[in-house]
Design a protein around this nucleic acid. Structure first.
Length: 464
RNA sequence: GGCCCGGUGGCAGAAUGGCCAUGCAGAGGAUUGCAAAUCCUUCAACGUCGGUUCGAUUCCGGCCCGGGCCUCCA
């Protein structure tokens, strides 16, 4: 399989070659755990999960190392803990756990490593010391700053001309900065603020250094793929590159940078600061299955903006219903020699074209319905499940989806036993040619969100 | 002010220099005791003005509109 990825560094698609096929390494910027994750936060996680699955399939699951950090020290955390009247450790532990549960609900695999920033303070301090020693950073008034003009390659990712970046820009002017673009590696902490001892006194790390330190510690000085949202290109990833390169013998730390577009609400970026967000948990509580949310997040190409709404979620749910309907009655105990068709890899390998992959699924579903014999049908069904596993969907039993999980907003109307009793009653009525009664039962169940489907083998039910 | 994206049928959303995307919705039909599911047929789009070309939704340029980054942000 050929995997091509759009590399932000080059602004074009490039074929992916790992540095070491035995150790394919990727890093994704994880959450700052001060609050629940909203749907926009979930997009890169789901996109990266597809990439992770694809790489595991291709290189072998034990040969892919995926790191996603948890930022558990940050000024927003300090503030939120203060507002909640809660300790920082309690807040971050609670929020990190919620994050893991929310992402698991979306069907994402846990990353190989999930390092916490507070567990990597020493590597950060070491890295900062190295930068100071080499003349890329300086201390001033208890702050340690990265001196941007010292790095001639600064701007290689965001492609911002250095001078123009300053002109008219809203950069923070601080008295301790030599240059307006210099950014904080380490800052002093007051008595109330959390802090760690360092050569520059008690303090805490700046925002960007943690990713450099954790990626360096777990993946090495140079690794394969680094991703995150479009909004991280500047300044976060630009600064990360600068720090890592200058600390690590001038080697660019990452070969392929990939960035996802935003989840939008009414054509505007979903963001905490705008307040136009909803959390993954809220959608789950409204009865949308995690798999529905996941499919919705994969319905547009990852670099395109993606509007999410009750209509788009409903559309995704309906598609999953349709897919699962085609997978009913798969005799899974029958051994099948099936492989994912090459055309599917061509689609998904072309910069993760998930919308086209979903179209492929529709085609496959259509072929299943038209299959001439049961052996061919089974082959197509197994292929479908295998291909869908790379997208992280369609892995549960159709009955489970159609009667429970997929219809979570409707599971309380009638329980399965009651439905079965109605079906038996209707069967008797039909045998007696009492169609009026049979139709009455059908209508009664439909009013409760239960659809009955008669077929030669009997009657099947599902929720809608 | 600087830099960067995008504008496709009623909606969602891909690909593509010349012919069908696909899904939902709509119309008609097949099937069904009635349904559901499924199948078949069908309608319909490429912001705008120029340029390149035998031919452009697709390449180039201007314009209009929307979004984003430059401050925390996935």
């Amino acid at each position: 399989m050929e995997l091509r990825l759009f590399n932000t560094l080059k602004r074009q698609k490039q074929q992916f070659f790992p540095i070491d096929p035995q150790r394919v390494r990727l890093y994704c910027c994880g959450p700052t755990v001060y609050d629940r994750a909203h749907v926009g936060n979930a997009r890169p996680v789901v996109v990266f999960d597809v990439l992770f699955r694809l790489l595991r399939h291709f290189y072998g699951s034990q040969h892919v190392i995926y790191v996603r950090n948890i930022t558990d020290i940050d000024d927003r955390i300090i503030e939120a803990a203060h507002n909640n009247n809660e300790s920082i450790t309690a807040l971050t532990a609670r929020t990190a756990r919620a994050y893991q549960l929310d992402m698991a609900a979306l069907g994402t695999l846990p990353p190989t490593h999930e390092p916490r920033a507070t567990e990597y303070i020493q590597p950060m301090v070491d890295m900062i010391m190295g930068l100071v020693d080499k003349g890329f950073a300086y201390e001033n008034q208890g702050h340690v700053l990265f001196h941007v003009p010292a790095d001639p390659d600064y701007g290689c990712l965001s492609k911002r001309p250095f001078e123009e970046m300053i002109a008219g820009a809203r950069v923070e002017i601080a008295p301790y900065k030599k240059h307006p673009a210099d950014f904080v590696l380490w800052k002093p902490s007051s008595q109330e603020q959390p802090g760690w001892d360092s050569p520059w006194g008690r303090g805490r790390p700046g925002w960007h250094i943690e990713c450099s330190a954790m990626a360096g510690a777990l993946l090495g000085e140079v690794f394969d793929i680094h991703g995150g949202g479009l909004d991280l290109i500047f300044p976060h990833h630009e600064n990360e590159i600068a720090q890592s390169r200058c600390a690590h013998h001038g080697h660019a730390p990452v070969r392929y940078w990939i960035h996802n577009g935003f989840v939008q609400v009414n054509s505007e970026k979903m963001s905490k600061s705008k307040g136009n967000f909803f959390t993954v948990r809220q959608l789950l509580d409204q009865g949308y299955a995690g798999e529905t949310i996941r499919l919705n997040l994969l319905a547009a190409h990852y670099r395109q903006p993606l509007d999410i709404s009750s209509a788009s979620l409903q559309d995704s749910k309906q598609q999953l219903d349709k897919f699962y309907l085609s997978l009913q009655d798969v005799p899974y105990n029958t051994p099948v020699n099936a492989q994912i068709p090459a055309e599917f890899f061509e689609i998904i390998g072309d910069d993760l074209n998930t919308p086209l992959a979903i179209t492929w699924i529709h085609d496959q579903v259509n072929a299943i319905h038209k299959a001439k014999d049961s052996a061919q049908k089974l082959l197509l069904q197994v292929q479908l499940k295998q291909a869908a596993s790379l997208l992280g969907i369609l892995q549960q039993s159709p009955a489970n989806w159609l009667q429970q999980i997929g219809q979570a907003g409707n599971v309380n109307s009638l329980d399965a036993d009651a439905i079965e009793r109605f079906i038996q009653e209707r069967r008797q009525a039909r045998l007696a040619k009492d169609f009026k009664k049979a139709d009455h039962i059908r209508q009664h169940l439909e009013n409760k969100g239960i659809i009955l489907e008669d077929n030669p083998a009997g009657t099947r039910w599902r929720r809608i």
